[in-house]
């Protein structure tokens, strides 16, 4: 990999199995947006890709989970586990306590086999970052997630969403889900998380790259 090159790799299995972006941002540094699972091996596909490229996992600097659809999150915990220097980022929830309660409830539901696979994956990520005492950077409008400079060039990665309104609506959804489904053995029916997707802007000198994720507006 040429150190100056920015390379965007869109990988995935198609057919609803999922997709992920593995991006070289220069200076042998990488970021990964979302994850999907190889249906044959069960492994994280971006992880397999990075291994194939013989990437030093310490050079993966940021892993963003744009939203919680199964096809964007499977395998992300394994990926995060292998990348010890990666900052983990996901869509912000305004009421963190309530949000953590929701994901913990869904984790508890896994014992009754009624949890969501995506929340299980997300819970594993929380366990990993807690164990490592890593920084977690929730994404929201106009937030700088990562910045690096080399050869007098600055590369910055910003999140452009979710908006305050989306975050607030998600808070309301969480309240409803907790009150209706907390103790009952039913699967938590999340509304479509697309409107809370994390949109990313990569700025590299005069170049700008907009990654829209599944955001619907």
């Amino acid at each position: 990999m040429e150190p100056d090159n920015i390379e965007i790799n869109l990988i995935g299995t198609g057919g609803g199995y999922g997709e992920s972006l593995v991006i070289h941002i220069g200076n042998d540094e990488w970021i990964v947006v979302d994850s999907c699972q190889n249906p044959k091996t069960g492994n994280s596909i971006p992880l397999e890709f990075l291994k194939q490229k013989s990437v030093d996992f310490n050079k993966v600097k940021l892993i963003v989970c744009t939203h919680w659809h199964d096809d964007h999150i499977r395998g992300i915990a394994d990926l995060l586990d292998k990348c010890p220097k990666a900052i983990f980022s996901f869509a912000r929830a305004t009421d963190l306590k309530k949000f953590l309660r929701l994901v913990s409830i869904d984790l508890q539901k896994s014992q009754y086999s009624v949890s969501n696979a995506s929340t299980n994956e997300f819970n594993k990520c929380l366990d990993i970052v807690h164990e490592r005492n890593d920084i977690v950077k929730p994404s929201f409008t106009d937030r700088l997630l990562y910045s690096t400079t080399y050869n007098k060039k600055t590369i910055q990665i910003h999140s452009l969403s979710p908006s305050d309104l989306s975050s607030r609506l998600f808070d309301e959804e969480i309240s409803t889900l907790i009150s209706k489904f907390e103790k009952r053995n039913k699967k938590l029916p999340y509304q479509s998380p697309n409107d809370r997707s994390v949109v990313l802007l990569i700025q590299c000198g005069s170049h700008n790259i907009l990654l829209g994720s599944d955001l619907e507006i």
Binding site: L100, Q108, H130, I135, V136, K137, P138, K183
Partner: peptide, 19 residues
Amino acid sequence: DFNKAADRASYLEKNLNIQ
């Protein structure tokens, strides 16, 4: 079951390094 979920949530809230 309910207490386990609530305890975990409280623990994470106190101990996650969220910036």
